[in-house]
Design a protein around this nucleic acid. Sequence first.
RNA 1: GCCGAAGUGGCGGAAUGGCAGACGCGACGGUCUCAAACACCGUUGAGUGCAAGCUCGUGAGGGUUCGAGUCCCUCCUUCGGCACCA
Length: 851
Amino acid sequence: MTETADSRTVVERYDPTVVEPRWQARWAELGLYETDLADDTKPRHYLLTMYPYPSGDLHIGHWYIVTPTDAIARFRRMHGLNVFFPIGFDAFGLPAENAAIRNGIHPFTWTMSNIDNMRRQFRTMGATFSWKHEVVTADPEYYRWNQWLFLQFLERGLAYRQKSPVDWCPNDGTLAREQVEGADRHCWRCGALVEKRDLEQWYLRTTAYADELLSFEGIDWPEPIRIQQTNWIGRSEGAEIDFATAAADHHPGGATLRVFTTRPDTLFGATFMVLAPEHPLVGELTAPDRALDVTAYIDQARRKTDIDRLSTDREKTGVALGSEAINPINGERIPIFIADYVLSGYGTGAIMAVPAHDERDFAFARQFGLPIRRVVAAPGTEADAPMDDAYVAHAADERLVNSGEFDGMPADAGGAAIVARLAAAGSAEPKVTYRLRDWLISRQRYWGTPIPVIYCERDGIVPVPDSDLPVRLPETVDYKGSGSNPLDHDEAFLRVDCPRCGGPARRETDTMDTFVDSSWYWFRYLSPHDDERPVDPATAERWTPVDQYTGGAEHAVMHLLYSRFFTKAMRDCGLVADDEPFRRLFNQGQILGADGERMSKSRGNVQDPDELVRRYGADAVRLFLMFMGPWDQGGPWSATGIGGVHRFLNRVWTIATDPHGREHGDPDAGRLPSGETEADATIAIRGAAHRTLRDVTADYEAFRFNTMVAKLMELSNTLFRYRGTTLAGDAAWDEAVRLLMLMLAPAAPHLTEEIWARRAEAAGRPWTSIHLEAWPVVDEAATAVSVREVPVQVNGKLRDKVIVAADATPSQIEAEVLSSPKIATLLAGRTPDRIIAAGGGKLINIVLRDG
RNA sequence: GCCGAAGUGGCGGAAUGGCAGACGCGACGGUCUCAAACACCGUUGAGUGCAAGCUCGUGAGGGUUCGAGUCCCUCCUUCGGCACCA
C-alpha cells in the first residue's frame, strides 16, 4: 500500500500483490468453492474446462482458457446455480519419459513436482476450482479404472487385438491415425516423420458407433467442429460388387474380387480393375512373366515414404498383374492392376476403375493407355463424344448410356437398379463405408496405463481379473539408453502366473494412449476416490452430461470424438445413462507467441503469466485476456494494452474508495457537465448503470467478454466524470458503484471483494463475500430515456440529426425532420419521393429522386 | 484440390440490414512536477476547407435494397483442418 506524498492523492492505491493472496487464502479457508454435489436445493451446473498436461509451468494460454471459464462459474453461481467446476491433470505421456531419460528423474517424480508447481500457479488466478475433486490420471486410483473399463469393453467386443500395419513414430512409438499430421505425415507431438510397421496392437471399436457419432442431436456444438468430425467419420453410401477372376494359365479363375463403389451406376464403364499392392490375392493373380515387376512395385510401395508419394502427386503409378476379372453385369473381361492410389485400409482394398467418371481412374487410364468408356451423359451430350476429363456429375439430369438395358435411366435410379439386379444373383449388396478407423490404443511406452491382459501359452489372451487391478507400473524404471519400452525387459513385471491355468505367462507390456484417460475424466471428477467403481451412477445421473465444456479447437477430432465414443460405450456397458458427454461446447482460440507461432519452450516464445501477475495483479491479467478480442479468436500474444485494463481497475478503485477526490489536469473537475442539473445527472447515472447491467448480463451469457469489459469501462468513465461533484457518494452514485462491483466480480474477483469488504465496513455491516451475492436485477424504468437523437439521411447519406421526445411517433419525427433548416436547404423546395422511418423512427431516410 | 474460419484506423477490436470505427493501446498536445514516472484533461480514419461543412473510406469487382462492413454472385489473400477415402 503506497501513500504518496502527493497532495492530490490522499487515499491508498490498490495493491494487488497484497490484496489478492489474502483473499485467495480466505476463500480457500472458507471452502467457498468446494461444491456439495449432494446439494439438491439449487439447480446443478457442471462447468468443465479441459484439464492441462503437467508440463511444468502454466503459460498464458492456460490463463486464456481457464480465467474466462472461471468468470462463467462465478456468474452462474450469482444466478443461484450449484456450480461444479473441477480441475485435474492429464498426467501420463511422453514428456515425462523424455525428462526421465535426459535427467534420470523418475517420470512420477517429475510429473508430481510439476503438478505441485501448477497447483500453486492455478491458485494465483483466483479460480474457483473444486480442488477436493481433483483427478491425476497417473495415480493408480485413476488408471485402475482405465483398465477396468478396457476389460468391460473387451468383454463386449469393443476392444480387440489385431496385427496390422501401424503408424510408427521413432520417438513416440505407435500412433493413432489422427495423431499423424500433415502431408508429410509427421507425429502430432514430436514432429518426427512417421513410418509403417506391422504389429499386434490393441484397438477400440470406434467404428461400431460411426453412425451414432454422426448425429449431433441434443448437443449444442460449434458448426466447424461438427463438420470436422463428420468429415473425419466420412460416411459413404454405395455398394460392394463381386467380380470373378478369369481363368488363365497361372490361375484357375473363379476367385471373388470384391470392390466397393459409390457409383454402381457406372459399372458398365469399368474398363480395368485396381487392387491395393497389399491385397491378399495379388500373389495368386500375378502371371509368372509379371512377377518381377509386381514384386518390385510392392517393395517400392512399402518402402516409399509418403513424402515420395506426395511428390508424385497426380502422377499415377502401377503395374498389370497379367490377369483379368469378369464384370458381373456384362461378362466383360478387364485387366487387373495394382497401384498405390488404392488404399488397403479403405473399402475392400480393390476398386473397379471407371476412367470416364473418376478423375484418378482417368489419370491412370491416360498413363497406361487404357480404354475410357462414357456411361453417364448430361442431356444433349453424345454417348460416345470424346472426353478430356472425367465426368463426375450424376445429378437427376444425367442418364445412363452404353449400359445395355439400363440405357436412358437417370444415373441414381440406374445405379440402384444395377445393384438390385446383381443382388438377386448374390454378387452385390448395398454397403455403407466409413473413413473412420478403429482407435489404435497400444503404445510401447512405460508412462501410461498398463493394458491389463496376460498372454498364456495355453490359454492365449487372458484378461487380468478385476480383483487383481490395478496392474501397477513398476516403481523402478530402467530405460537402458532410450527408445525401447522399459517394461519389455522388466522381468518382475513381465512374469506372471496365468489367472486361468496358473501356468507361466507373460504380461502385456503395451500401455494405453493417453487419450483414453481424457475420454471419461469428467465422470471421475464426481467421485474421484470411489474404489468400488469408476463412476457413481447416482451422482452421474444427477450431474452429467456436462452443461458447458470449454477448451481449444485443436481437439476437434481426437479428444472430442473419443469422449463421445467412450460415453456411448460406457452407456452400453450399463455404467452411465448419457448418450453424449458435453451438452454445450465452446472453443476458445489459441494464444500464439508474439511471433505468431504456437507457443513452445523450444521456440522461446512462451509468455510467463507469473511475471505479469506480479506486476499488474491477477485481476488485470484476467481482464486483459478477456478484453483482447472475441474469446473464440485467440491470436498472437502482446502485452501492449494491459496498461489499459490496469488503469481501468485503478479507476474503479478510485471511484469506490475516493468518490469526492479530484484530479489535477481536469479543468472541469468537480463540476457537473455544462447544462446539466443535479436531477439530470442522477437520471444519467442511474440510466448508465442499469443499461450497462442489461447489456453486460447479455454479454456474459454469450461469452462476449471483450464487449462486456468495454461496457464496464464506459460505466466507470461515466462515474469518473461525476467524481468530486455534489452527486458523488449519494444514493444513485452508491447504487451505480454497487452494480459496477457486482458486474465486475466474476471477472475481477479480488479487487471487487476488497472493495465490497470496505463498503461493508464503512456501512457498519458484517462482511459477506461479494461472490455469494445474487446477480442484480435491471430497473427497466431507469434505463428509459426522455429524449433521443434521430439520424436523418437523404438518399442513404447522413445529413442531419434531430432531437425528439423518446416517445415521439414516426409522423411526429417526420414533421420535426422536415422543419429542420438543414434538411429544408437540401430539399430546396423539392418534395421527397418517400420518407422511410426505419425501426419505428430510429432513423429517417428521405428518398429524393434526381430530376 | 476439397472442407471450415476470417479480411474494418498505426495496432487489438466494436457495430439485431439503419449514425462505421464503441472500448482500449499507441501517437500528439496540455495540467501537475525542479525533472521524470504515475495520475488526469484534450485531439487522433484519409483528403479538403478559416469555418459550418464537403468528398472518399470496412480485401477487389458486380448485384439486391430507400439504405450493405452485414445479404447474394465472381474473384483475391491469410489462417486452421483434410489430402489419392473409390
